[in-house]
Design a protein around this nucleic acid. Structure first.
Lengths: 200, 200
DNA sequence: CACCATCTTGCAGACTCTGCAATGTTGCGT
DNA sequence: ACGCAACATTGCAGAGTCTGCAAGATGGTG
């Protein structure tokens, strides 16, 4: 499936561009790095850069838009007897585990770089927003409602994004010593309880 | 306070630029409008445009970063005996009412234009993300916890954003026939109940 | 009225991003 | 092995975005 030399090369180039962007920005800051720099370090022409990423920022994030699809696919594949909230929670737990297991600690570096640049934080929020839309559709399919008829699908999708973003933020805050899946779990516990005020 | 001629002129210029951007983009689409066009219609030089908005997109959104501050200020001003969730909900209801009452139906137009351009949807998400950060701080102050010690502030702030975004999305979906405050209320009802699956 | 702060503007220049056409590679059938 | 078709890379030209700087216009103040 992914065996063709062509496919592998494309993947490799994409990753090379992403890592080059990430490292350079970590070293010099976002404004200290141009597309030409990134292309040079990745060993391709500047023009080629734009065949892989529409934007310098996107290269730094390096998130595949197909990630969102994979998430919704996982949700759809989940046993139908589970209620949507439980299904979504389970799917996100798996996703969190996968992220924490990524080789080279790519996610920690990514998150550190993002956190240091407000623009990138915004971009990340935007990416989440995108995938929430797709997620809402999948949830609607699960509950037998339509996205524009009921609050539930859109709201639950947005809340799921909130849970993951919160967990990521706290993961970074713990300097990645905490367990990401556990942080996701904690968030869902509070959500499922109806957000009661914490005992102070 | 806001009485100086200078202040008023700045406000007027800012609004003129925003409305010019909004109208032009509504007519020709985002890519059919350049900063020069916007500046021309607003009657200022292109260079001046950038004294007011860092980006063409920002001019189309036209959201004052001070809006976020006003929200947190309102939360802080809210009676301290209310639990944070109730306080936040009340504050958002007021905000929703204010948005729906805006003259000229600015918000409907804004939302329609935004919805038609994915980039702007992303930008809006980003703006929400920003204000959620500030909100988290205010919530932490209210609950006596610290943002990086407890899930609650960050999560509740993110959820509040989810509620408002969901309500806005549905408002648009209803072609602005629904009551925005009511949509916000519905979202909070579901949230406070712990997101139970809807009876289908 | 005169001074200071602030706002506007033009200009030069770096950078981002796109379309197009030429050139090089890969995959596949014969 | 050969050669064709598909696809990737590259350079170039050009429009558009955005910034710094310095000159000029304008509102606020004593």
């Amino acid at each position: 499936m992914t065996s063709g030399l062509r496919e592998r090369k494309k993947l490799a180039t994409r990753l090379a561009l992403h890592e080059a962007a990430l490292q350079l920005v970590a070293e010099r800051g976002l404004d200290g790095v141009s597309v030409d720099d990134v292309a040079a370090r990745a060993g391709v022409s500047p023009r080629t850069f734009f065949n892989y990423f529409p934007t310098k920022d996107d290269a730094v994030l390096g998130l595949d838009p197909a990630d969102a699809e994979r998430l919704t696919a996982a949700l759809i594949a989940h046993p139908a007897e589970d209620p949507p909230l439980a299904a979504l929670r389970a799917v996100q737990l798996e996703q969190a585990a996968a992220m924490a297991a990524e080789p080279e600690g790519l996610w920690p570096l990514r998150l550190r770089v993002i956190e240091a640049h407000p623009v990138l934080v915004s971009r990340l929020h935007a990416v989440f927003g995108r995938s929430e839309r797709a997620l809402a559709e999948a949830i609607a399919a699960r509950t037998g409602t339509r996205v524009d008829a009921d609050v539930y699908p859109t709201l639950l999708a947005a809340v799921a994004g909130a849970a993951m973003r919160t967990a990521l933020h706290r993961w970074l805050g713990s300097d990645f010593t905490a367990s990401l899946p556990r942080l996701v779990d904690e968030a869902w516990d509070v959500l499922a309880a109806g957000l009661p005020a914490p005992r102070s």
